[in-house]
Design a protein around this nucleic acid. Structure first.
Length: 334
DNA sequence: CCTAAAAGTAGTGTATCACT
DNA sequence: AGTGATACACTACTTTTAGG
């Protein structure tokens, strides 16, 4: 293995000079800089991460804690992971991905063993015991999601309440008077997952505000779950003309189920979905969506974390404003 | 004198301080 | 602008000590 001492010997300088060339924390003559860089290149040197962590008590690793539960939509989650990892690399950080649900003890384990410099927490619940623990840790933490009491932690998320309102108002503007929400899986509500509650409350509030009849149902992500969910909704509202879907895993089976029931989109029923942009276009009928900005959320979370790591303590709750992208799946009610 | 346990030492690769 | 010494946390190895 090539060490900093090998580079120093090759370049004819001391190892501290190599270190300063690498960190850029001191001025180095251009000639020395050039020789050191040439040696680094020639020898194929890469700093030893363990030794770095030992000397600096920094790991250059962010822990992304993302419990992978059965009811979680992996493609959507990967959008967040991708954005977090990509942004972290811009700051010379790597990402430690933790997908087991270890609860508060897991946070302590990672922080106290100094595996990472900061923790990013996903799948946040309204009353999440991890939040209090995260605050008490010595390393910074940022939430992707919004608990009832975030304390002085920074949070980023889509403004799900506003997103729901956007969907309802769009349908109401098109003359729809009877709408329904196909929500996340029942377990997501039971767990008190923060986005689910916020979306549902926004949906209900907007419907009331616009005088629209509204029903909502949790939906198990399977063909059977979708059939059951639709049955219940249509029993409740046989004259339904608008659907809001807040459950990515359900979109495909739902579209196919509507088709088999001869409910044409958008002639018989308008559909608007909350889903990442790239997953909306590739459907039998291009979907009107409120895009889930996983890219922006992941990037913001890492940027906030980096600010904290630089010692800037300015907790911020950043709720991104939803957009609505109209497509063929919604139309004026006839 | 032998063994086991405890204490001590050296070495790892890097960042950084104090110095020239 | 450049350098030597040191700290960092841990491990592997060596030496010392205690007790029989």
């Amino acid at each position: 293995m090539v060490s900093i001492a090998d580079v120093a010997r090759d370049a004819g300088v001391s190892s501290s000079t190599v270190s300063y060339v690498l960190s850029g924390k001191r001025s180095i003559s251009s000639e020395t800089q050039r020789r050191v860089e040439a040696s680094i290149h020639r020898l194929g040197y890469h700093p030893h991460a363990g030794a770095r962590a030992l000397a600096s008590s920094r790991t250059s690793v962010l822990a992304l804690i993302m419990p992978l539960r059965a009811d979680i939509d992996v493609p959507v989650l990967m959008g967040f992971v991708n954005s977090v990892v990509t942004t972290a690399r811009n700051y010379d950080y790597d990402v430690l991905l933790l997908t087991n649900d270890e609860g508060p003890a897991g946070l302590r384990r990672v922080a106290d063993s100094a595996m990472a410099d900061a923790l990013l927490l996903m799948d946040v619940e309204e009353e999440d015991p991890r939040v209090r623990v995260l605050q008490s840790l010595s390393c910074p933490g940022v939430l992707i999601g919004l608990p009832n009491d975030p304390g002085d932690l920074s949070c980023v998320d889509l403004d799900f309440s506003a997103a729901a309102k956007r969907c309802v108002r769009h349908l109401a503007d098109l003359g729809h008077e009877r709408v329904a929400l196909v929500g996340p899986s029942p377990v997501v509500y039971e767990r008190g997952t923060s986005f689910a509650g916020r979306f549902l409350r926004g949906f209900t509030a907007a419907a009331r505000e616009r005088g629209v009849h509204a029903t909502s149902r949790a939906c198990v992500p399977s063909y059977e779950g979708v059939r059951d969910c639709l049955d219940r909704i249509l029993t409740d509202q046989p004259e339904l003309t608008g659907l809001v879907v807040h459950n990515e895993a359900v979109i495909a089976p739902l579209l196919s189920e509507l088709h088999s029931r001869d409910m044409r989109i958008p002639e018989d029923i308008s559909v608007v979905a909350v889903t990442p942009d790239e997953m909306a276009a590739n459907r039998p009928v291009p979907l009107t969506t409120v895009p889930l900005p996983s890219e922006d959320i992941g990037r913001s979370a890492v940027e906030m974390t980096m600010r904290e790591l630089q010692g800037v303590r300015s907790p911020e709750i950043r709720l991104l404003s939803p957009r609505l992208t109209p497509a063929r799946s919604t139309a004026r009610r006839v």
